[in-house]
Structure formats: C-alpha cells, structure tokens
Amino acid sequence: MKKEVASYILLFLLSTALITLRIKVRAIAEGPVLISTKILEIYQGLKQQSTKTVRSIVEAGKILEENKLLKTKLLELKQIDMINQKLRRENLQLSRLLGLKERLKNIVIPAEVTGWVGEYWEKRFKLNRGKKDGVKEGMAVIGSNGIVGQIRYVYENYSVAISNTDPEFSIHVEDFRSKVKGVAKGTGERMKVDYVPPGMDVKVGDLFVSTGIGGIFPPGVYVGRVARVERSIEEKFLDIELIPTDRIENNRIVLIVGERPVGKTKKKAKRKR
C-alpha cells in the first residue's frame, strides 16, 4: 500500500513536471505535436494509397468488362470485314468475267459452282447449268483468271466439270513470250506441258495461254505459269511444270464457253440488216 502511494506520487510529480517544463524545454512542447503530425501524415498516405488501390481494382474490373465487349465487337467487325472482302473479290472476278464475255465470240453461259462430286482427290465440280441452258460435253470452263476446267458430264439442270489439275484434263497451249507450243495436262496438284523438244526457249515464270487449236478452248486465255523447267538428255521432251493461274475452287461464278455454230452467226447478221 505504501509502495503504491509512493509510486502514485512519483508518477504524479513526473506528469506535473512534464506539463510545467514544456515552457522551458522545447522538446517537451513540440515533441507530441511533431509525432502526432507524423503519425497523421503516415496514415493519410496509407488511406490515400488504399483508396487509390480500391479505385484501381474497381476500374480494372470495368476495363476488363469493356475489353470483353470490345473483343466481341472486334470479332463481329472482323467477320463483316471478311464478308466485305469476299464480296469485293467476287465483284472483281465478275468484272473480269464480264470483260471476257464481251471479248469472246463463242457461246458464253455464266454458271455457279454449287459443289463438288466424287472423292476429294477427283477434283470434279458441279455447276448449276445443264442441257436446258445449252451446255454440252467438252465445253471449256473459264474463271476470272484463266481456264479452270472442262465440262465432262451434262444433265438436264446441271453439269459436272473436271478441274484443270485433273489427270484427265488436257489443253493445247503456247508460251506467251516465245510462242513455244505444247500440250498441258493435269497432274493432280499442278499441270505439266508435254511435247516440247529439249532445245526450246522456255523459262521459269513464263506464262502459257490457250492456242484455240481444236476449237474447244478459246485462244489467248491464261492457263498457267512455269514453276519448273528441267532438261534431261535421256528424255525426248522438256519436263515443264505449270502452276495454274486460276482454279475452279477459287471461283463461285464461272463461264462455260463453247464454240458458236456457224449458222447462228449468219442469222444474227441478217437480223442486223
């Protein structure tokens, strides 16, 4: 009890001394103010930081949501762009076909490629024109960038064409630059030109066009570009590989071209008079 009272008196005097000495000792007067200000500054800083962090988290959530929406929108726009590009290409192809149609003096029947028949490697395509439209077996099929095939089977409302890379396809061709002639045949993936003697002037990059010999294919239409030329002493002819300038699978609309009968032309001339 005595110790307790003595401790109380001691602490009382100490506290009183602190209160009264603040006038004389600056540290006692200013210390608490400085410490409390510092503590407040630290906590204000922490508060601001935590507020910023919370705000960033909320904003990040909003940004993620917005990002998701924008990605969906971007996907939609990409799809629209793809459709537009496809339409643009088709438009270009149709313009070329229209130009070709006007140039050719043959029968020209526009047709749509509606699908393929047979196995995938057979490269046979279905066209939506048949006997009733005037399509005949053997007629040429031309795309926007050159010859793409030949009519093989004709039915009432549709026909089947073989592709220019089909092994059963063949066409008389000539080098547009050097006028070297040969016969181009399908090899499955590309084409090759046969019957060109070894000494002939054929280079990689040369363009081969149809000659019109036989009257099946119109003359001067692109067939393919030389990808490889090999000269061999043992072989009788040059080994020339062509990359077709166009393929039937790249076209939705093609032209079926056939020879115009002689009689029809005369009748047209009479009508004009």
């Binding site: 602490l11 409390s36 200000t37």
Partner: peptide
C-alpha cells in the same frame, strides 16, 4: 496498474499532439 495507466496516458498525449503529461496525470 499505475504504470500501465501512465503509459496509456502518455500514448494518448502523443497521438493527440496535446500537452505531454495531461492525459498521463
């Protein structure tokens, strides 16, 4: 108890920026 009370009082003075010793007393 006296010592803890004195410590508590001083701590309160420092946090408040008040005159040192008032809360302790």
């Amino acid at each position: 108890l006296l010592l803890w009370a004195w410590l508590g009082g001083l701590t309160e003075d420092l946090f408040n920026g008040a005159i040192l010793g008032v809360n302790a007393l």
